[in-house]
């Protein structure tokens, strides 16, 4: 497995923060699956996905995120996303991801809303 992404997990009670580095493509699927299985993420009520602002997310990466959001919806987990460039905020809105996750302009804003 190519070391495409690193996902570090920080737990703050009901909120788990997934700090994600690297571009997001279909090759990111096992990294997200592994992070989602982590005990600090699996049963938590809220998940915040924090991306690198310079990260590129292609259609395969969007598929991985949709897969994750389908699971979080099934488990009634609230999801927030931060760290996106304006370009990807627009794309996430366009493809409908914003109907399943809230997008925050900064980490502070995300923590205020979700923490």
């Amino acid at each position: 497995m190519v070391d495409q992404n690193q996902i570090s997990i920080e737990n703050r009670g009901e909120l788990s923060i997934l700090d994600i580095t690297g571009d997001i493509t279909s090759a990111s699927e096992p990294f997200f699956a592994q992070a989602y299985k982590h005990p600090d993420v699996d049963g938590v009520g809220k998940i915040l996905l924090k991306f690198d602002e310079g990260a590129y997310i292609n259609s395969g990466g969007i598929a991985v995120l949709i897969q994750l959001l389908a699971e979080t919806k099934r488990k009634a987990q609230k999801v927030g996303i931060t760290g996106l460039s304006d370009h990807f905020k627009k794309i996430f809105h366009m493809v409908g991801i914003t109907r399943f996750a809230d997008i925050y302009a900064s980490m502070d804003e995300a923590l205020k809303a979700m923490g």
Binding site: D23, Y56, I57, N58, S59, F88, I91, M94, V95
Partner: peptide, 9 residues
């Protein structure tokens, strides 16, 4: 007409 998917950079 409304949706454009990113493929690569």
């Amino acid at each position: 007409n409304h949706i454009e998917l990113p493929v690569s950079i």
